[in-house]
Structures are given as structure tokens and as C-alpha cells.
Nucleic acid binder design. Structure first.
Lengths: 223, 223
DNA sequence: CGTAATGTTGAGCGCATTCAAGCCGGGTGG
DNA sequence: CCACCCGGCTTGAATGCGCTCAACATTACG
């Protein structure tokens, strides 16, 4: 899924994949407490991962789409510490971690690749921490939309139109907001002509305005 | 520093370490934008890592102490994306990442070890996301104190007494609070007899009460 | 077609923030 | 040695953003 792989490297990936697995919308790929065996590369579909505090509250830690890898949390303790839930019917490649380690000992580029995937996740989470720690509701939602649409665009989808696979509550959990706040903020964006929102269908009318909310530049206005 | 290493594995670690480096209090081990070459194992001292948004705000992403590793953020793009600042005079082992990859291809246990370190960081950040996304000020500070004292205790320090190496502002940045809120919350804990706070010196008088704030159990009270 | 899940909107409230003033402690230089 | 200064910390008062609670609208789905 990442670019720049030679043919032999693609063969390698085939070697890693023990099986394919389909996950129905609403069901779990793995759950908190489950034994860790494999990483999963998403082929199609859309997931959320979430952790739970002891007293029931839970926090969505990310949304994953085709080409992304889930399951890294399980490596430390041989048990998963979060749930991975399919938000639409999905198909994943099951890659047993033993096999990954074995092959990545033999193939430098694969080893490097695995390291980068883990580091990328760490850096992504830094960004989420910045969002949760210091942004206001509008900034959070704008950041979220820009990030989603950018990742979709990289997969050949529209730059300006997207369908949300998750509920307002799930967006809120991820962004550290209540669902009502998410809804209200969407409405405010719509009033200002920045987006068009019809339930889960979102059309971005003014990307610059969104960027300006995230990173207000003195001069820039609503071009 | 982690337990259960054989003699030969310890030799390996020696092989990885290119040099030691001392970092004076207040100065940077590495900074955002700097080329990535190495991971750093902290021998002594105390660090914070922080990321900055484009418009100046910054977010402390973690505090690291002896035995912990910093620099993982640099692997993805070959550049660091955060700053690592020494909060007291420190000494680190410089471990060139090329060397780490080379050796971990040869030694299974080292490879596994590297993977676990990265996965542990991912899981740690999940916990921080839960904190930032869903906890109130008191819960955040209580969680923070319990985590700090637990890590210190694992290093042979007191279970109930600690010296904060960071300012209220840095604590606040990490916890997604303003420094005044941190200060007020400390005072509230002190009023309630849960802790004794004198500037950076903190003595925990009632660990159970702290745990109860983090994870309120119906029956449990201020034993 | 009816029911439950999801989403929107309003009113009032509360927690954390903002702004501001004062305190404490440590280091420096007169 | 003491006065001063400055960064860090504490505390107070007022504000406001996001939350809570509640009613209603809309959509999905059996």
C-alpha cells in the first residue's frame, strides 16, 4: 500500500499475509484483552480504534482506512489494549507478527518499513495530543475534516466531498467533545458557508477558511 | 535498563551505543526539524518532549526519566518532529538507528525489544488521549501524580514523595490545562488532605483518595 | 409503516479560562 | 549582608466555551 515497493518486496508482503478476513460493519477485528497475534492491513472498509477507562468512558483513538495498519498496540504486552471496530463492511490482511519479525530480519527494506509504520503512528498521536490539549471546538473539527479529506484524496477520492463513516458521538469522542458540540459546530460552519452538511454527507465549500480556522494567519480572510 | 537481559544482550547494547552525551538543564537533546540519526536512552536526568503547532502554541507530549527512550518520532521522515528538552542535567546513550536496525536483524531478542519500546509508546499515548479527551482537571492531575510516582517507585524512589522537575505551566501543557488550573487543583488536593505541596516538593498523603478521583468506585471513600 | 437510532437545536449551567494582583524563593550585585 | 529583581507560583473575580438536560426532527431499518 505505501509506494516504492519493488516486485520482490510485494512478494514478501504476500508471504506475510496468512489470510484475509472480512469484518462486518459493527463487529470487532480485535478487542481489548484479546491475545495479540497479528497486525492487520486494511484492504477495504473503515475502522475506529478505541480505548476504555475502567469506569466505562471510552475514547476513540483513531479512524483507519484502506492501506493503514491496526494492531500495533498489542505488541508490548502480547495483549490488545483497545478495540478495533469496523464502521463499514471491511476486509483486512492478517499478518502474523512472528512472520513479520522473521521476514523483516531478512529484508532490510521491510524492517525499515515496519519501523516507519510504528513511528508514523507515534507522530500521528502527537498531533492528536496537540489537538486535544490546546485547540477549541472549531479548530478541532476543522483539523479533523482537513485530515480526513486529505487522506481520502490520497486514495483517489474527492478533495471537497466526503461521507462520514462515523456518528457524531464517535467524532466527539475522538475530538474530546460532546456530540451536541460537534453537531453545533457543523451547523456553524454551514451557516458561514464553509461546508455543506447533510447528515453524514459533507461537502467542503471553502478549504481555505477551514485552514484559516486551524491556523489563523493575520492577513488571510475568507477568500 | 529493562529487566531480563542476558549477558550477551548487554554486550549488544554496548555495541549499539556510539557515545554518551550530557545535556545541560534547559538545553535540547534534539529539536523539531533536526535530522534524525539516533535514539537516545536516558541514563540520568529528566526530559520533556513537546510538539508545536504552526502558530506558536505548544504541547508537552511526555516526560521521560532514566531508562526510557526518546527520539522515536524521527524514524518516519528522517527528521525529528518534536523537541526534547532536559529539565535537569542529564546524560544519555546515543544509539545510531542504523546500528540498531543492523543488530536487531541479527538478534531476535533485540528486535523484539525495539518493537516493544515503540508499541509501549503508542499505548502510553492512548492513555494520554483518554486523559485529554475525557477527564476533568482533578482526574487529570491525580492520574499524572499517580503515574509519576509509580514510575519513580519502580526506580527505587519513594512511593509517596516526589520532586517535580517541571513547572506548573509544563504540567498544564501536558494535561491540557492552564497553569492556574494546575495550581488551584494542587491547592484543592492539599485542602482535602490528599497531598502536601510545597512548590515542587509533593508528598502524597492519601494514595487511595487519588485513585478514587481517577476511578470513582461507588462504595470507596476517603479511607 | 412503525420503531429505534441518530442528529439538530434551545436554554441554562458549571468548569476551566482569562485577566489581574500579590506572594514566595533564589540568585545577584551593590 | 541585605536589597533588589525576576521567574515561578498562588489566589481572586469575572467571563465564556462547551456541557447538560430536554424536546424535537430525521433517517435507517426491520
Amino acid at each position: 500500500m505505501p509506494l516504492g515497493l519493488s516486485e520482490e518486496e510485494l512478494d514478501l508482503i504476500d508471504d506475510m499475509v496468512a489470510a484475509r478476513r472480512t469484518v462486518k460493519r459493527g463487529s470487532l477485528l480485535f478487542r481489548n484483552g484479546e491475545k495479540f497475534t497479528s497486525l492487520y492491513a486494511i484492504r477495504t472498509g473503515f475502522f475506529k480504534t478505541c480505548v476504555a477507562s475502567e469506569d466505562g468512558r471510552d475514547q476513540v483513538t483513531g479512524f483507519q482506512m484502506a492501506g493503514e495498519v491496526v494492531g500495533l498496540d498489542g505488541i508490548v504486552n502480547d495483549y490488545h489494549t483497545c478495540d478495533a471496530v469496523a464502521l463499514e463492511d471491511a476486509e483486512v490482511c492478517v499478518m502474523p507478527f512472528d512472520r513479520i519479525e522473521e521476514l523483516s530480519r531478512a529484508v532490510n527494506s521491510l524492517q525499515r518499513h515496519v519501523h516507519k509504520i510504528m513511528s508514523r503512528e507515534i507522530v500521528r498521536e502527537h498531533g492528536v495530543m496537540l489537538l486535544l490539549g490546546s485547540m477549541r471546538a472549531e479548530e478541532r473539527l476543522a483539523t479533523f475534516l482537513l485530515n480526513l479529506v486529505q487522506r481520502l484524496h490520497a486514495r483517489g477520492f474527492s478533495q471537497s466531498e466526503l461521507i462520514l463513516r462515523m456518528t457524531r458521538e464517535e467524532i466527539g469522542s475522538f475530538l474530546g467533545l460532546k456530540l451536541e458540540t460537534v453537531s453545533r459546530t457543523f451547523s456553524r460552519f454551514a451557516e458561514e458557508g464553509i461546508v455543506e452538511v447533510k447528515q453524514r454527507h459533507v461537502r467542503i465549500l471553502n478549504t481555505d477558511a477551514l485552514k484559516d480556522i486551524v491556523n489563523p494567519k493575520s492577513g488571510a480572510g475568507t477568500a
